[in-house]
Amino acid sequence: MSLLEIRNLRVEFDTAGGAFHALDGVDYSVEAGEVLAIVGESGSGKSVAMLALMGLLPDTATVSADRMTFEGIDLRTLTAAQRRKVIGKDISMIFQEPIASLNPCFTVSFQLDEVLKTHTDMNRRQRRDRIVELLTAVGIPEPERRMQSFPHQMSGGQCQRVMIAIATACRPKLLIADEPTTALDVTIQKQILDLLTTLQRDHGMGLIMITHDMGVVAETADRVVVQYQGRQMETADVLTLFENPSSPYTKALLSALPENATGDRLPTVADFAETFAAGTAGSTEARR
């Protein structure tokens, strides 16, 4: 049994101009200890899919799926109270832009303590010790002092580490990392990726990595889902995806990598328009 299984996920938003289909029948599955990458350009529905899983989309969104299970539990039938026992504890998410995700009015210690109070039976001293342990694990220097800092007193890389500490505080079975290296310099990106993969490996977590960086995919993923405009173009193990992609869109993505460039100009999706349109139609028919 898969840790997470989602079949035919659809998300529709009610807008002033009518219904907007953000996701159109995508499938995901994640095993314990597996790293799944979801790739695609901005607007392809990567984050929307995971926010739908977390139950964090606004009231204007309509979410439907033929199947949405976590450890065999049907997430579609859970009450709000039941969902709160799973989300944040067994399923956790690292959001984009850590500085915007952390509350500027509260210290790092307060925000970590809030998670532990909600999802564990630890007393105050145990929670403090756990906070120090978490900040040490994610590489925050002088954790006893830094835990009293506010987000604006920390660098972008440190805020990202705090977000990882919050997300892993209750040792989740599934961790979702949404563009975890965005807006970080190259050395910090490498440190954050190493930290995530180490935590995933040490705790046997399933990890979903949302990214548009194919280098990150090659370095971290076991399997890859490729999306375009809310539709699923291809699912493959990482080696097959890079060596023998089946979707014209995936081929376009890989051809646009600077190291794969063969001419004076990087190719674009427009260069693959004819074959890409045919491939998209084929994928849609296959799902139906």
Rank of each mutant, 00 (worst) to 15 (best):
P104T: 10
P180H: 14
G204T: 08
P141M: 09
A273V: 07
A177H: 07
H152F: 15
G18H: 01
V63N: 02
A80F: 03
R146G: 05
R145Y: 04
L75S: 01
E274N: 06
D178G: 05
G55Q: 03
L4P: 03
V11S: 02
G17W: 00
L193D: 02
L266C: 05
T118W: 00
R201C: 06
T275H: 06
R130F: 11
R7H: 08
M163R: 01
D27L: 11
D113Q: 13
V217L: 06
L175S: 06
A252Q: 09
V35K: 09
T187E: 08
V132G: 00
E41C: 08
E41S: 08
F276M: 15
V186Y: 08
S2I: 01
K89L: 02
P258R: 04
A61R: 04
E144F: 09
R288L: 15
V138K: 03
F276K: 05
P143K: 05
V48R: 03
A273G: 01
F150Y: 15
E219G: 00
Q189Y: 11
L57C: 07
Q160R: 14
A277R: 12
Y28R: 00
R83Q: 10
L193N: 02
S149F: 14
G263D: 15
L254T: 10
D185C: 13
L112V: 05
E41P: 05
E71V: 01
T118I: 10
R76V: 12
L175R: 06
H119C: 12
T77W: 00
A256C: 11
P151V: 03
R201N: 13
R223S: 11
V63F: 07
D24A: 14
N260Y: 13
T79N: 08
L51Y: 13
E97Y: 11
D213T: 07
F70C: 03
L193V: 15
P104I: 12
D237T: 11
D14P: 00
V48S: 04
V138R: 02
M93K: 01
S149V: 00
T120H: 07
A61G: 04
T262E: 14
